[in-house]
Structure formats: structure tokens, C-alpha cells
Design a protein around this nucleic acid. Structure first.
Ligand SMILES: [Mn+2]
Ligand SMILES: [Mn+2]
Ligand SMILES: [Zn+2]
Ligand SMILES: [Zn+2]
Lengths: 132, 132
DNA sequence: AAGTAGTTTAGAACGATTTTAAAGTAAAAA
DNA sequence: TTTTTACTTTAAAATCGTTCTAAACTACTT
């Protein structure tokens, strides 16, 4: 399925800007990035785009499930092209994230979901720090 | 140990402002809160404090291990008075966090920590959503 | 008591993100 | 195809959480 079809299937109009972003993000390579990182990639590809459009598109892509947003206490939003359920190592010093595939983690025991709620995904974060 | 002693032991001068905050936060009750939440509590207690001081104190308290900061993709920092290793339920709609005590979770399998790094804590986040 | 290092503060500044509103574009209707 | 409609992009302004600045203040040391 090409990117135009992916956008259509997600319910998004394949505009010029969304296609530029899809060409960068939906190439099957897993990556973590910020809005600014993406703008730099757009610029490097010989294109340009308003930062407002980049935020608009990232929000649409995320809400459609084409990308994810990582839970992180950094002040800048971090997005993730790996949309499979998976986990992360986090170096709190640098903010660097490393993927952990889902089958690398196995939970023996999980707490009871609160009354009236449904489980909507489990994420394991392993904080790491450089050895001294 | 009283709050003045707790601050001293943490290497912090027990100033009037830090004592006001310690009286609110270090009462043994686990809670999740923002800087603004705390300012409201300070105001309700008949005191007042500059928002800069509140941020200064929260950062000091966190760096001394008197409180924690939660990993969250919300745009406002969320702090936690539960400093034991523990986990959370997160309602992504509302941002509400609910503690999961450490013994409620059991990991059968953990990935190998990357070369040159040390494990610095494991956090499990269970995203939940309201049943419809 | 005097010195000094650390702390508080109001307000300015900052940086990430969102809003505004006008111009442009894609899809639908005619 | 033309027209209409809803959606999208944009630069610039606004917003909002947080940090910085620098002057006044306070806790601790000598
Ligand atoms: Mn965040
Ligand atoms: Mn911010
Ligand atoms: Zn990832
Ligand atoms: Zn907690």
C-alpha cells in the first residue's frame, strides 16, 4: 500500500504536505522524533513547511494511529513511528529512547483494572543510566 | 522525624516557604499534583508564594528524592509524593493517575540492559479508558 | 554582630504549542 | 467542467508552562 492509500485509509486527505511527511515517516523504519526534528528532515529533503502545519499533521497522524506519542516528562513532545505495542529504555540524562520489542517483556502478574475501566495498553519503561 | 529534620537531612535549608510546602506534601498521603495545584493548596492554607519559588522548591525536593516527577506526555509537569518504586494506571482522556503498588506487578522476563548502561528503575504504565 | 552563601520574588523572557483568520486546495455536487 | 463546499495551510500573534534576572531578604557561619 502506498502512502496516498495509507492516508486515504486513515481518513485523511492526501495533501502535498501530508504526503511529504508520510514519505519521511512511513518508510517502515522505527524512529523517535520531535516536531523540530521532523521540520529539519523536511528541510533537508528540499521541501519546507510551516511549523503549525507540522503540528497539525502530527496530531492528525497520531489520532489516526499512523504514529504514536511517547509518554515522557521532557518538555518537548516525542513521537514514535513504531506503532506496535512495545516498550522503551530511557536514558534520563540525555532523553534518548531505545525500543524494546513486546516479546522481550513478560508480565507474570498485573493488577486488577479499576471498576468501570478497560485496559487500553501496557507500557514498560526501563530507566537506564550510563555506567561510570 | 519532623519536616524540619527531613529538610535538613535532605541537605535543604528549612526556609519558611519550604516548610509550608513540606507541611502540605510530606504528610504521608500519596498524591499526584502540578505546580498550580500546589499553589492553590498553599493559598487555601492561608499562605501565598511566588510561582517561581514553587518551581524552585519542587525541583529541589525532586532532586533530593523527597518527591518524584511522573513520566507523562501532558504539557504540565506532574509530581508524586509516593517515592516508593511503584506503577500507574493512566486515564488518557482525563490525565488521571492511579497508583499501582510495586507488589501488584511481577515481571517474568526483562530485556538485557544495553551495553554500558545500568538499570535505574522499571515503571509500568497501564493505560485505561472508561467503559462505554 | 558581621559576613557570606543561599533563597525568595515580581516581572521579564523563553520555548513549545495552539490559535487566528485569510488564502489555498481537494473533494463533492451540479 | 464548473461551481460549491468543506477542509487545509500559513505567517503571525497568542497562550501557557516554566525558567531567568537581579534586587531584596534570610539562614547559617565566623
Ligand atoms: Mn511531557
Ligand atoms: Mn512548555
Ligand atoms: Zn518506540
Ligand atoms: Zn504515583
Amino acid at each position: 500500500m502506498n502512502n496516498k492509500e495509507k492516508l486515504r485509509k486513515a481518513g485523511l486527505r492526501p495533501t502535498k504536505q501530508r504526503m511529504i511527511i508520510a514519505d519521511i515517516l512511513l518508510d517502515g523504519i522505527d524512529r523517535h522524533f520531535t516536531a523540530e526534528n521532523l521540520q529539519n528532515e523536511i528541510n533537508s529533503s528540499g521541501n519546507s513547511m510551516s511549523i503549525a502545519t507540522i503540528y497539525n499533521c502530527l496530531k492528525k497522524f497520531r489520532n489516526c494511529g499512523l504514529i504514536k506519542q511517547v509518554e515522557s516528562s521532557k518538555d518537548t513532545a516525542i513521537f514514535d513511528t513504531n506503532i506496535n505495542q512495545h516498550h522503551h529504555f530511557l536514558d534520563e540524562e540525555t532523553g534518548e529512547l531505545i525500543d524494546i520489542e513486546n516479546d522481550e517483556v513478560n508480565l507474570r502478574k498485573l493488577p486488577k483494572i479499576p471498576q468501570g475501566y478497560l485496559n487500553n495498553g501496557v507500557e514498560v519503561l526501563i530507566k537506564i543510566k550510563k555506567q561510570i
